[in-house]
Computed example of a mutant assay.
Amino acid sequence: MNMFTRRGALTALAVTAATTASLAPLASAQAQAFPSKPITLIVPWPAGGSTDRHLRGLAEIASRHLGQPIVVENKPGGGGTLGPGTMALNARPDGYTIAQYPLGMLRIPHMQKTAWHPLNDFSFIIGVTGYTFGFVVKADSPYKSFNDYIAAARQQPGKIDYGSTGQGTSPHLLMEELADAAKVELNHVPYKGNADLMQAVLGGHVMAGSDATGWDKLVDAGQMRVLLTFGEQRTQRWPNVPTAKDLGYNVVSTSPYGLVGPKGMDPAVVRSLHDAFKKAMDDPKHLELLGQLNQAPWYKSPEDYRAWAQATFAKDRALIERLGLAAK
């Protein structure tokens, strides 16, 4: 290397170092200024369902701590994966677009090819809560108990149906697990979300519905009857309703969920969002809302949330394969 080449290389290195040094404070300043405009929270279910009700309430409280509005955008489809999947592919990792991350995100990729990776394409922000799942029928349904429903399925294989919030969602897989344990064949009808499913049950388009507690007001109003829940224990709100375990089926799930952003987010921005939503989680109004939905807090830090997702992604592969739903 001659003198001029060496001098040029040294100059380039100096410029690169100076540029890197100047950009670091800029990135830090941007993180400190976050947020300077409204934040979009993608809810991958139709408006009016239990998840929408929960996240709108949580976002309203968190917005006070952030000092900027949080605008909820409903983007249903794909069993709850369309919204966060689209965000991962298209949104900038600046913290201004975040999404709910339902458990289906860790299951659908085992069942079909996706354009996104459930771990590599996301920044994990905070784990929030899990659902209480239940199985409901219309109030005038001939099925007075879950055993009645299963008995009908034994008499008419493949002719007794139920709806869920989508292929590969927890309400779907819980019923597939239960049908497998009961040795019956059920006809599954997927919907985009709770609101669509509940209308289908009320309209008599489907015999029953498997979902989280978006059916609570309909049950309390006497329009529907809940036959079964899927928790470890009976709910405080409906203590007379048996769990799947009570009936001899070892099928339990709360399907935890939280919030994520696109991959590559500034850790300082992740921390700002985490801190605001953690304060919102602990707010008495949020805890009251969780009580109404019969959901329990499920706090996870960004690091713990990612570790949980990694472990669950590996574990749920076995469940998908056992149920015969794995991609060929």
Rank of each mutant, 00 (worst) to 15 (best):
G261A: 09
M3E: 08
T11K: 10
P190E: 02
H54E: 09
H110F: 11
L66M: 00
E176C: 12
T19R: 06
L319Y: 13
R107I: 13
K263P: 11
E185Q: 12
L26V: 12
A309Y: 06
K278L: 04
V71W: 00
Q199W: 08
E176I: 04
S36C: 10
P171W: 08
T165S: 15
G48T: 09
I61N: 01
G77I: 03
L290P: 05
G85F: 03
Q295F: 10
T235G: 14
T235S: 15
L290E: 04
P142S: 10
F122G: 00
T132V: 06
P76Q: 02
I39D: 05
M224G: 00
T169F: 15
L290D: 05
V184R: 00
S50V: 05
G57T: 00
I320Q: 06
T19S: 11
H172R: 05
A139V: 02
Y149S: 01
I125Y: 00
R225A: 04
A12T: 15
D283C: 01
T5D: 07
I98W: 00
L227P: 02
R225I: 02
F277R: 05
L106H: 09
L13N: 06
T19H: 05
K328L: 15
Q223D: 05
I160T: 09
P190G: 05
A195S: 09
T5H: 09
D161K: 09
A59R: 01
E303C: 10
F313L: 14
Q292G: 06
Y257W: 15
D266A: 12
E321Q: 14
W215F: 12
M175L: 15
N194S: 13
D148H: 05
P93H: 08
D304R: 12
L218F: 03
G85M: 10
Y305M: 08
G222H: 03
F230C: 04
S22E: 07
P239F: 08
T20K: 12
A309W: 04
E60G: 00
S36Y: 06
F4E: 06
E288D: 07
Y143C: 02
A212T: 14
A18E: 03
D148L: 01
S210E: 12
M281H: 02
T165A: 14
P242H: 12
T165D: 10
V251F: 09
G67Q: 01
L289S: 05
Q155K: 10
G67C: 01
L323M: 14
M224R: 00
P93W: 07
L325D: 07
V251L: 15
R56T: 09
A208G: 04
L119I: 13
Q292K: 10
I98V: 13
K285L: 03
R64M: 00
K328F: 12
